[in-house]
Every structure is written in structure tokens, then in C-alpha cells.
């Protein structure tokens, strides 16, 4: 019984949060990795692109809530998501036209593009704060739980409850759908194949008649969609605050690099690796230890390796380890 309780507690406090956080990171890292693979620079504005997409979604959600459109048990934000994606697409396409295209034509060094993306990051950040303000925004509605801890306890008779929040369920399902669609697109469609070809070898792709501007536009379309989905899911699951999206940049980049920059499979794996390490290292294991260990060994401390304030330090440490021992990432980056 104690063993079952331990497993349930583990699932409740570690596995489920880590899976949903990992899915959000994976979606973010996919965007970063696609930009790196095709446009060939590290896009520091990605966190704020996510924030912008999420912001548009939130505004539409509020409007829908005010006129009474809803999805019943599901959050209204899912209905508003397509509008968020459209807004985000418009933003990145305008940015590309006004800012990035000039450097692309000049064949500027990647580091210049990185600095430019930093400027874009601040403009986007300023825009988001200007429109919606720097504060926390809550926009989740609908049913809160798929299974609440109390129902679970009543159902199984265990001491430990297992709660699955609706947002966590939606996160995982959406992530699977989006990733499946992305891989189908990259591997099966003509446009997807031309994107991969362009990423592999720009000159050869140009020679075989691939239109680079078209590839770039498609990349931005996909990236905007991924960023908005990731941003909205993160906002639903935790809360929307512009500054946290800036801070997400580090775990997202860590995920993309751990998996190998430019490699979409790697980005997904990296997202889960980072999320699981963050959650397991900052979780207080006391509860599970009490279930599993004989009474004599019961810990009197929290058995927490690092306080949750150092979440960022975990992704950073993993990043450093990968840079030290395998700088191309686990999946050998730069192949789309």
C-alpha cells in the first residue's frame, strides 16, 4: 500500500507536472531550433514572441468570455488560439520584412542577427507590456480538473490523491497533435521537404529551384504557430506574466542545445530532459521517502536537492554539461 502511495505521490508531484512543463518547453524549443536550422541564428526574441501570441489569445479570450462564447468544460482560450496564431504570424512576418530580411540579403554574420534579435526582443517585450501591462493575467476557465485529488482518493481508497488538471491534459494532447502535424509536414509535404533541403545545404537548395523567401515565410508561419501554442499552454498551466516569458528563454535554449540545435527531434527530447531534471531536483522528496523507507530511516529534512528558486540553475547546469562533453547536443544538431 505504501508503495502504491509512493507511486501516486510521485506521479502527482513529479511526473505529471514535468510532462506538461516538458511539452511546453519542447514546443518552445522546436521554434528556436527551426529558426536556427533555416534562418541560421539564435532567436532571442522567441520568449517574447510566445508572450505576444499568448497576449493576443488572452485578449480574444476575454472578448469571447464577455460575449458568452465558450467551450463548456474546456478553456475558452482554445477557441481563441487560432486568432492568437494569426496575430503572432502577422507580427513575425512584419518583423521579418522590416528587420531580418535586410540582414539576410546582406548575408550578415549570425552574431549580428543575434544582436538584432535582441533588439526585436525588447521591442516585442515593450509592445506586450504596453498593451496588456506587466502584471499577472489569469485567463483559464472551464473545468479545473480532469480528476481531482479527492475523487481519486475516493475512487481508489489510497491516502495519496492524484490530481490531473485540465490544462495539463490539454497541454499534452495539444503538444502531441502539434508535433505530429509538424513532422508530417516536414517529412511528407513538398514545402516541408524543401525546408529540410534548404536547412541542409542552402546552395544546393537554391540550385534545385527552391525559392528561399518562400521557405523563410513558411518557417516564420510555423514558428509563430508553435510559439503561440507554447505560450498559451504555459499561460494556461501557470499564469501569464510577460517577464516569465523572458525567463523561459534559458530553459528553452537549454532544451534546444541539449537536443542539438537545428534538430527537431532533439528539441523535443531536450524539453523533457530539462523539465524532468528541473522538477526532480527541486522537488522535496520527503513524502515519498517516508512511504518507501523503513521508519528508522525516515528523513527529518525536506530531502530537496535545490530550492525551487534555483530552477534556472538546473537548466543552466545541464546546458554547461552538454557544452562541456557533447557540444553538438545529444542528437547531433544541425540536420533538419
Amino acid at each position: 500500500m505504501d508503495f502504491l502511495n509512493a507511486i501516486v505521490a510521485l506521479a502527482n508531484f513529479v511526473l505529471i507536472p514535468a510532462i506538461s512543463y516538458g511539452s511546453q518547453l519542447a514546443l518552445g524549443a522546436l521554434g528556436v531550433t527551426l529558426i536556427y536550422g533555416i534562418l541560421r541564428f539564435s532567436n532571442f526574441a522567441h520568449g517574447d514572441t510566445m508572450a505576444f501570441g499568448a497576449m493576443v489569445t488572452i485578449l480574444v479570450t476575454w472578448w469571447m468570455q464577455s460575449v458568452g462564447i465558450g467551450l463548456g468544460p474546456l478553456p475558452t482560450a482554445l477557441l481563441a488560439l487560432p486568432f492568437g496564431i494569426l496575430g503572432c504570424v502577422a507580427l513575425v512576418l512584419v518583423t521579418d520584412r522590416l528587420v531580418y530580411r535586410f540582414y539576410r540579403e546582406q548575408k550578415a554574420k549570425p552574431v549580428i542577427l543575434v544582436i538584432v534579435s535582441m533588439g526585436v526582443m525588447f521591442v516585442m517585450n515593450g509592445l506586450v507590456r504596453f498593451i496588456i501591462g506587466p502584471d499577472d493575467q489569469n485567463f483559464a476557465d472551464g473545468e479545473r480538473f480532469i480528476i481531482s485529488a479527492r475523487d481519486f482518493r475516493a475512487m481508489t481508497g489510497l491516502d495519496e490523491g492524484l490530481a490531473i488538471r485540465t490544462t495539463q491534459g490539454i497541454t499534452v494532447v495539444t503538444a502531441i497533435v502539434v508535433v505530429a502535424a509538424l513532422f508530417w509536414f516536414l517529412n511528407r509535404t513538398r514545402t516541408g521537404k524543401s525546408m529540410r533541403a534548404y536547412s541542409d545545404n542552402e546552395d544546393l537548395a537554391l540550385l534545385s529551384g527552391i525559392n528561399p523567401e518562400r521557405v523563410v515565410v513558411y518557417t516564420w508561419l510555423i514558428v509563430a504557430a508553435l510559439a503561440t501554442v507554447a505560450g498559451v499552454l504555459y499561460g494556461l498551466d501557470k499564469s501569464f506574466k510577460p517577464f516569465t516569458y523572458f525567463q523561459l528563454l534559458l530553459p528553452i535554449f537549454a532544451s534546444a542545445i541539449v537536443g542539438g540545435l537545428g534538430n527537431p527531434l532533439g528539441a523535443i527530447a531536450g524539453g523533457y530532459i530539462i523539465a524532468f531534471s528541473e522538477v526532480t531536483i527541486t522537488y522535496a522528496w520527503k513524502k515519498i521517502a517516508i512511504y518507501l523507507l523503513p521508519e528508522r530511516f525516515e528523513p527529518d529534512t525536506l530531502v530537496q536537492l535545490l530550492s525551487t528558486d534555483y530552477k534556472l540553475a538546473v537548466s543552466f547546469a545541464i546546458l554547461l554539461i552538454v557544452l562541456l562533453f557533447r557540444p553538438t547536443g545529444l542528437f547531433r544538431g544541425k540536420a533538419l
Binding site: F41, S42, F44, P110, V111, V114, Q247, L249, L250, F253, A254, I257, L261, S307, D309, Y310, L312, A313, S315, F316, L319, L320, L323, P327
Partner: peptide, 22 residues
């Protein structure tokens, strides 16, 4: 790669601040 330094420095800065705060 040049962008790795950027990400590593971004990280160390956040962590130094986290240490000072906690």
C-alpha cells in the same frame, strides 16, 4: 559556436542574481 557564449552568459547572469536573492 558564437551563440553558445551568449546563452551561457545569459544563464550565469540569471543564476548570480538568484544566488544574491536567495
Amino acid at each position: 559556436r558564437s551563440d553558445y557564449l551568449a546563452i551561457a552568459t545569459l544563464g550565469i547572469a540569471e543564476i548570480i542574481i538568484a544566488i544574491l536573492k536567495n
